[in-house]
Design a protein around this nucleic acid. Sequence first.
DNA 1: CGACTTATTGACAATAGTCAACACTCGTGG
DNA 2: CCACGAGTGTTGACTATTGTCAATAAGTCG
Lengths: 214, 214
Amino acid sequence: MDTADLNLLDALVTHRTRLKKGAALYRVGDPFTALYAIRIGSCKTTILAEDGREQIAGYHMLGDIIGLDGISSDRHGCEAIALEDTEVCALPFDQLEELARTVTSLQHNLHKFLSREIGVEQHVMLLLGSMRAEERLAVFLLNLSDRYRLRGYSATELVLRMTREEIGSYLGLKLETVSRLLSRLQEEGLLQVQGRTVKLLDLAALRQLAGRHC
Amino acid sequence: MDTADLNLLDALVTHRTRLKKGAALYRVGDPFTALYAIRIGSCKTTILAEDGREQIAGYHMLGDIIGLDGISSDRHGCEAIALEDTEVCALPFDQLEELARTVTSLQHNLHKFLSREIGVEQHVMLLLGSMRAEERLAVFLLNLSDRYRLRGYSATELVLRMTREEIGSYLGLKLETVSRLLSRLQEEGLLQVQGRTVKLLDLAALRQLAGRHC
DNA sequence: CGACTTATTGACAATAGTCAACACTCGTGG
DNA sequence: CCACGAGTGTTGACTATTGTCAATAAGTCG
């Protein structure tokens, strides 16, 4: 988005919310009133199945906007939980729609935004449906690396904000599988693991593993 | 959508397109200009990976609107192929946006529409990431059943428009697995398979298998 | 410091994939 | 209208990948 649009959005922000680690920004079924832009920290969004199973649908950090899935039914369809102390600002959606009626560029950006979310999820569907465990993990790490880089952090020294179980949930794998794969990739010299710190040592090899998805 | 909005949309439709079975409505990278509403027949949309792998992202039939993922980059991110002789009508997207600026209800419906697509894809992510083969197939069949029913067709006698391989591609399974599962469910008396005709005999048991996802 | 959560690793099991043979279907052209 | 052939579907035997269970180690937080 260009700066003019961003300024308009800023005007919509009436209040910011602080979330302690583990706190929920919204839960399934909560009334949908606003989108949320992450200012500090990071969140996971979780999809819940009727039978209690749950799966992490995405990780979100500085600048990401979450809550898009709530528009369709006026209720949130997943829940957002802070992975660390986090601050978000609310963009009331009715005001956003009103603004979009007069500011064409904002309207189009909103549509692009929603559409991009669809594209991202299709990418995850491809990952879950046709890639093997090792490829999934490589894609995950490279994707994180990219997003860190874009935000000015190191692209090779990642500090994960989530547990092995959460990574597994996102990738459709069990936590033991994630742990084993990290150990194996370390043995092979592609990366170095130290708890939640992962140093990517051979980006080219990881990209090859990922099947050039990144 | 209410009838007033639908009439407005109708006014946008300048031409209809007929597709022979197997023909592409659009391919990856094609310029995005319009959404398409299916009038007759059905389509699959396919995501392509850089390394040639492909996966079916969705099946679409009468009344469905496809092409939403193209908005974000002005190019289509997946390809749409007719599964049978099919007719679609094009909704030029710039005109749709223009209309949405003045007709509030249409604007909101467009947003809901985009958001619903996000929700549907999250549902597929859950399916691919945390359900076993048998559950996935049950969800798939029940989902088809629902959509047929909503369109006035039989909810229990399904005529599949796709091959076992295509079903497998959508569900993240191999065609042999799909074939075996259908045979097994038939043995267990939950359904009856005859080529591409599937009769659902025990919806309750299928729902149980699906983990109450449907 | 100590309780609890998170992570690693091994042994084994289960699920789904691979390869291969064969049967069935459907549309086409003789 | 029938026969042929390509594409599609089924099934079996075997393999590979990932999951399960369990024991232990390492971190983390009050």
